[in-house]
Design a protein around this nucleic acid. Sequence first.
RNA 1: GCGGCUUUAGCUCAGCCGGUAGAGCGCUGGAUUGUGGUUCCAGAUGUCACGGGUUCGAAUCCCGUAAGCCGCCCCA
Length: 416
Amino acid sequence: MIRAVKGMRDILPPSSAVWNHVEETARKVFRSYNYGEIRTPIVEETVLFARGVGQDTDIVGKEMYTFEDRDGTTLTLRPEATASVIRAYLEHRMDQVPGLRKLYYMGPMFRRERPQKGRYRQFFQIGAEAVGSDSPAVDAEVIEMVIEILSRTGIAGFTLLINSVGCPVCRPQFVARLRERLKGVVNRMCADCQRRAETNPLRVLDCKVPEDQPIIDALPSILDELCEECRSHFDSVKSYLAGRSIAFEVRPRLVRGLDYYMRTTFEIVHGALGSQNSVLGGGRYDGLAEALGSKIPAPGIGFSIGEDRLVMIAEEAGADVRSGVDLFIAPLGETAFQYCALLARELRQQGAVVEVAANGKLKRSMELANKLGARFALIVGDDEMAGGRYGLKDMNSGVQEPVTREELLRRFAAHS
RNA sequence: GCGGCUUUAGCUCAGCCGGUAGAGCGCUGGAUUGUGGUUCCAGAUGUCACGGGUUCGAAUCCCGUAAGCCGCCCCA
């Protein structure tokens, strides 16, 4: 048998209803903050991600689906969306619009990693970017918005973590200082840290090995090394969040993996996720446009929600999504069947969820109505056709009463 | 890319030290005429993941491959 490729999966009912619920909630929230949807191509030139995400990241280094087009161009399935959004921002000169450009997106991303819980090779992200300002007020609004999405989706128990990773002025200084301090102690740390000390010293700060913690605690913190501008920016973000009564934890060790982040970075974690406990990550990327070779600046901040993970949490929290059928119609006889088809269309136009059984044994129809979880069943046979009153049966109570066509239409009108 | 566990009916799984397969749920049909949910009866379905090996004989032991899950790395 042909199966779905490794790390990619089918999303079926009833789970797909939860996906729809999450997406609809997000769209409503985005709309209320005046964000518009952007749809970028799933395929981009490889160089966009190489420059935008960063040559040294794992994503670019070993996780991209890259192939050569027939004309020799090297293309890549997008591993994330921010680089594409900024590319589109620059390509369409969105810096010319008044105020901020506020965009949201949702769709599949591709990363060739080893699949596990909450991690797939094709996964879905819901994200937003506010481009055109470096003001900390924008950071606060963006963070508020994403929290609004989570809570309106119906989940609780998440934690907002924030940090500042500095800018091209202060970060290199900090990294140099960190390297210096690591020299003396790294040989007492875990094997991973010894490697990270060489490849990416910032990652050492993120180590979870308990034995390493005392050593890490003694290492300098990025927050102590921020330049004046970054310090004041971060202070403003924190006070704006506090002003909005948004709870957060400052995590000086929070280092995001993408090269383009600067100043504000944030992440929301949730306990139900296991090892992949991050539901969403985001941050500011004021230098990204320049990294893409643009002379037009595009300072911005954005985030990306792991939709697969959010859905997982929502399902574990028992997200109740409306499903099932409102009315199951059981016709008896060919004439009744034809009539019922018309009646069903009318009810559906009013928004009711209606099933019409094939013309057959009533017993079979009733069994099916029960299995489908129908709230009501309608029996339409010769007697009913002649009398103008049909048998409406409440499938929970078992009570059946005769109703006219008009009563029926009125009764199922509220569903629209 | 590395490690551990798993892979038997549509689903969840049992099958102890090797003798060619079972349960529950689901599905199909029935218990007299146009009424479901409970009950009763009957029934169908498996190249026991794939390939190779050991053996008189393998779902059961060994090797390999693949897939799934879980962890590491990293990330959403």
